Amino acid sequence: MVEGIYSVVFIAMGSRCEIRIAAANSETAQCLAARAIDEVRRIENKYSRYRSDSVVSRINAAAGRHAVECDRETIALLAYADTLHKASEGRFDITSGVLRKAWNFRDGVLPAPETLAALLPLVGWGTVARKQTSVFLPQPGMELDFGGFGKEYAVDRAAEALAETGITHAYVNLGGDMRFLGPRPDGSAWDIGIQDPRALETTVASIPVRRGALATSGDYERFIEVGGKRYCHVLDPRSGMPVSYWRSVSVLAPLAITAGSCTTTAMLLEEEGLDFLERSGMSYLAVDHQGQIFRRTL
């Protein structure tokens, strides 16, 4: 059977998403992609902080009051968050999402120092009480936010849903976080362009990928400029202020959740991020604040 490559586009997690898949025709591609899209929707509904009935919202609503029982999937994600916190020397902190209350990247205004000062005591993964089946945020007003790896987790789950049906020539792309199930039908790699963080219509490199995952974090995704200085959405949990050393970091890894976690951790570690990327053992391409490119290809 002759197969073509079809694109199934949908919106999820506030992003334009796409599944590119080898199939006999467009209708078949839509049917094959449906199971993966359902899995993305499931994860978004379960962990979105924008839904009052999500697991994350229930945990946050109980802050300072009582522990919340969690299922196995949620407990595993919390354990992963703990691993990231340790690997990043405390910079990757899923309680730091509360700082978004101080930052408005639409109006172009810096938060007042007293606003940040009031929120910083609510940041502290180390104070969160976790048991085998429950989690407790000790202070009223504390929040968990899975935004640092939730989308990448959904990418992996969607890709696994496709793989379970025997698909071997496809990739999942949720807003730039990607997982590849195999090469194109002719065996060639997918060529993925890495966006120039200062000229968004151009690329700084093209990376051939046959299998695995690719994720990018950058200071161009959400930011404001005040007094000629760029303030991006990646916030240091210690100060509440944006990081500024890297313009973008891209990582190739076996899983999207690993690739995305590495890019964000490198951004948060600033000058120390390059050493972290080297120790990770994975391929990467990073652009620093001066536009210098660092890369390692395995």
Rank of each mutant, 00 (worst) to 15 (best):
residue 167 I to D: 00
residue 206 S to T: 14
residue 273 G to T: 03
residue 223 F to A: 13
residue 191 D to N: 11
residue 193 G to V: 01
residue 264 T to N: 09
residue 271 E to F: 10
residue 209 V to L: 10
residue 149 F to M: 14
residue 188 S to K: 13
residue 168 T to Q: 03
residue 246 W to R: 05
residue 235 L to N: 07
residue 213 A to K: 04
residue 239 S to E: 07
residue 255 L to H: 07
residue 220 Y to S: 10
residue 208 P to I: 07
residue 159 A to K: 01
residue 240 G to Q: 07
residue 226 V to S: 09
residue 182 G to Q: 07
residue 244 S to P: 00
residue 189 A to W: 03
residue 164 E to T: 03
residue 223 F to S: 08
residue 148 G to C: 08
residue 251 V to Y: 06
residue 176 G to I: 08
residue 179 R to P: 00
residue 173 N to I: 01
residue 161 A to P: 10
residue 278 E to I: 06
residue 274 L to K: 10
residue 255 L to R: 13
residue 227 G to Y: 07
residue 216 T to S: 14
residue 206 S to M: 09
residue 161 A to E: 04
residue 232 C to S: 13
residue 240 G to F: 04
residue 266 A to H: 06
residue 247 R to I: 00
residue 159 A to G: 14
residue 204 V to E: 13
residue 244 S to N: 13
residue 254 P to C: 03
residue 269 L to W: 04
residue 197 P to G: 12
residue 255 L to A: 04
residue 271 E to I: 03
residue 229 K to L: 14
residue 196 D to P: 11
residue 158 A to E: 05
residue 257 I to G: 00
residue 159 A to E: 02
residue 232 C to G: 11
residue 255 L to Y: 04
residue 261 S to A: 15
residue 216 T to L: 05
residue 223 F to D: 07
residue 193 G to P: 11
residue 252 L to M: 13
residue 183 P to V: 11
residue 246 W to P: 02
residue 225 E to P: 01
residue 150 G to H: 07
residue 232 C to W: 09
residue 192 I to T: 04
residue 158 A to K: 04
residue 209 V to Q: 01
residue 210 R to T: 12
residue 233 H to K: 04
residue 150 G to F: 12
residue 277 L to V: 03
residue 200 L to Q: 13
residue 243 V to I: 10
residue 201 E to G: 11
residue 159 A to R: 02
residue 268 L to Q: 03
residue 275 D to V: 08
residue 269 L to N: 12
residue 148 G to H: 08
residue 277 L to T: 09
residue 243 V to G: 02
residue 229 K to R: 15
residue 164 E to P: 00
residue 248 S to G: 05
residue 256 A to E: 05
residue 250 S to R: 07
residue 260 G to S: 15
residue 193 G to Y: 01
residue 249 V to M: 10
residue 180 F to M: 08
residue 232 C to M: 13
residue 229 K to Y: 01
residue 248 S to H: 01
residue 222 R to M: 11
residue 177 D to G: 09
residue 226 V to K: 14
residue 268 L to F: 06
residue 197 P to V: 12
residue 244 S to F: 00
residue 145 D to P: 15
residue 169 H to M: 03
residue 146 F to P: 14
residue 152 E to S: 15
residue 212 G to R: 01
residue 162 L to V: 05
residue 211 R to Y: 04
residue 180 F to V: 02
residue 257 I to T: 13
residue 229 K to W: 00
residue 146 F to S: 11
residue 146 F to T: 08
residue 220 Y to L: 05
residue 198 R to N: 15
residue 225 E to F: 00
residue 238 R to K: 10
residue 201 E to W: 09
residue 214 L to D: 11
residue 186 D to L: 11
residue 259 A to N: 08
residue 212 G to E: 03
residue 254 P to Q: 11
residue 184 R to D: 00
residue 201 E to V: 12
residue 201 E to P: 00
residue 278 E to S: 03
residue 239 S to A: 06
residue 232 C to E: 09
